[in-house]
Design a binder for these strands. Structure first.
Lengths: 139, 139
DNA sequence: GTAAAGAATTAGACACGGTCCAATCCTTTG
DNA sequence: CAAAGGATTGGACCGTGTCTAATTCTTTAC
């Protein structure tokens, strides 16, 4: 469990660690992602970074999120056909997805045992394994 | 392993079994889904049903696919942020997803052992568990 | 300090998957 | 055969995400 405070300064360092030039917008977007619990979509990121004063354009939000993905500073979570969620936690883990509310919750990978995955065809390598447990209110 | 021939007549029966009124378009769409190996997206379904003569509108394709989903005659597979795949196999199973080609391949659920899923918060029930193994060419 | 080059950001147009709606076209039933 | 309900349709529409050309910001070199 990380207990780091997500200050702007820490964001600058984080960006540098991933080879990303820390600009105002990038710092704000990183800060939005890392300081918010849970998983945001592009729309929400833009809402947060522009809450006080409009600072960041739609194009930049998408550019930046894709840059972060590219540099593996964040991860994308694909569970909803209509939008992508961005996950600041790149440590291997899985997700509960509440199909009623759209809420995503982490599942620690330590808890999970997964066996019996078939051999990959030759010429292919695994990029990652996503386990999504879809849940809904029992009512 | 099912070895049923996917004739139009069988499609009619299948639709009836799921409480769906078998119309021309529905039969054609069901046939497209079940007779094609693999997993199609809406676009491809429309392409196939309209290959010879244009018969089915975009609205009907989507209406029908959503109807099939509703009646649990097919399943959706969400792995690509830009489109949904429809899976005629509703028997529990998982998927390889080739991120380079977009190809989906089934993983038999028998092969897989999954343990240690955390307790669900009260008031929630599991709808399903999706395991997606993302793969790419090793080159 | 300043000019030039390169990087980042921007507004707005655009692409595309998918939904919505009102009008039309079947079917079925009486 | 008429009326009613269901299914289908074209086309407008919506939201997420991309593209592009123009602008601004930062860096470097002098």
């Amino acid at each position: 469990m990380r207990t780091t405070k997500y200050t702007r300064d820490n964001m600058v360092e984080l960006l540098r660690q991933h080879g990303i030039n820390p600009t105002h917008q990038r710092i704000e977007i990183a800060h939005a992602l890392f300081s918010h619990p849970g998983h945001l979509c592009a729309d929400q990121v833009m809402g947060i970074t522009n809450a006080k004063h409009s600072e960041t354009s739609k194009a930049t939000v998408y550019n930046t999120l894709n840059l972060f993905l590219d540099k593996k500073m964040i991860r994308e979570v694909i569970v909803d056909p209509s939008k992508v969620f961005y996950d600041p936690n790149t440590y291997p883990h899985h997700h509960f997805y509440n199909t009623a509310t759209g809420e995503l919750t982490d599942i620690d990978v330590e808890d999970i045992g997964l066996t019996g995955l078939p051999q990959l065809p030759p010429g292919l390598v695994t990029e990652g394994v996503d386990i999504i447990v879809r849940v809904r209110p029992s009512a």
